[in-house]
Simulated scan of single mutants.
Amino acid sequence: MTTTRNPGLEDAAELRSGPKSSVGQRLLSGGTVLALVLLIIFFFAMRPDVFLTFTNVRNILYQVAILAIIAGAQTIVMVVGDFDLSVAATSALAGAVAASLMLAGMPVALAILIAIIVGTLIGLANGLLVAYLNLSAFVATLATLTSVTGLAFLVTNGTTLFNLPAEFNVLGQGRFLEVPLPVFIAVAISVILWFVLRYTTVGRRWYATGGNAEVSRLSGVNVRMSRLTAFTVAGAVAAIGGILLAARLGSASAVQGEDNLLFSVAAVFLGMTVVRSGAANIVGTMVGVAIIGVMSNGLNILGVNAYVQQVVTGLIIIAAVTLSSFKNRER
């Protein structure tokens, strides 16, 4: 009987007890977390009066909440060994659809539901192109990115949609216990995705597919369906992120949150170094999101030029991919 290596189960066991590994492997695995700690220490040393105050920590969480959701969507796709360039565009279209429907008089709840369905359908289309038409995930989602962005411009007529209902805006601007609601929603979605990936059959099949699609197929896993469901769920999650972003800003546009694509990729790659298998995982992704959030907030506090921040972001992406490559060589 052929057995399938299951990165999800291995990562789960590792996160509970920790692997017996060489010093180099341990340093590589702990490097991402260490980088986060060092960033916090550095920015606190530079601005102790501001950086670790409750208000600033709350701002960091608020700033990364949407990114955490988008990065969660990207993580799902990368777990199955694929890549989705359209997550940010999908989120922007979902926000634009919800906004346009509400401005047309549709109830808030129904507009949100339709926007999530739109995101789900985009994910389904990506899954069909990649899993059943055997297109490269890069090419397929690049095409989807272009088409979805065009649809978003059509929905918004190339403008920014304002004057959204107050009951909608509260989703992105409201607070509970002085903490913004998007933070709670991002945590809830992350926990759900973590549970699905770690404890469910669907999650195990996703990890098996990403580990070795052919072996998984021979072991009885429906690889095509696994990839299809991963893209579909990712589309729905990305749509939720876009809806929350529109609620947070109180407006919607076709290019809203476009930076989240690169940031989500960087977060997932950074997170892949946290576990021994080098597989995408939610816990690691959230560490990557935290690094990006802390870095961005700290540089803003220090008054660093926005263009310099773009350079730093590019260097982080290069470092993340390089670390992930080293991790795969250790496997």
Rank of each mutant, 00 (worst) to 15 (best):
V283G: 06
A236E: 12
V179S: 14
N260E: 00
V23H: 14
N59T: 14
F153T: 10
Y62W: 11
S17Y: 11
R175Y: 11
T120Q: 12
D259Q: 15
L61R: 05
L128T: 10
D259I: 05
N328V: 00
A279M: 09
I66P: 04
A254D: 08
N169T: 11
G303Q: 12
S17C: 07
P180F: 02
V265I: 05
F162M: 04
N281S: 14
E258W: 00
I112V: 14
I318F: 10
L128A: 11
I69Q: 12
A71M: 03
L67C: 03
I76Y: 09
A247R: 03
A143C: 05
K20S: 15
T2Y: 01
L85M: 11
A319L: 10
V155R: 01
V179Q: 15
P107F: 00
A238C: 10
T209M: 15
A320R: 02
F263C: 06
F326C: 00
F153R: 15
T200R: 07
Y62C: 04
M106D: 02
L244I: 02
N328W: 01
A65I: 00
T159M: 14
G250A: 02
M46Q: 14
M286D: 09
L38C: 13
T156S: 11
V268H: 07
T201K: 06
A109N: 08
I282D: 08
R5Q: 07
I301F: 04
L302C: 04
A246V: 01
P180L: 06
M78Q: 07
L67Y: 02
L124P: 09
G278F: 12
S147I: 06
T156V: 03
A319E: 04
A125Q: 11
V97Y: 01
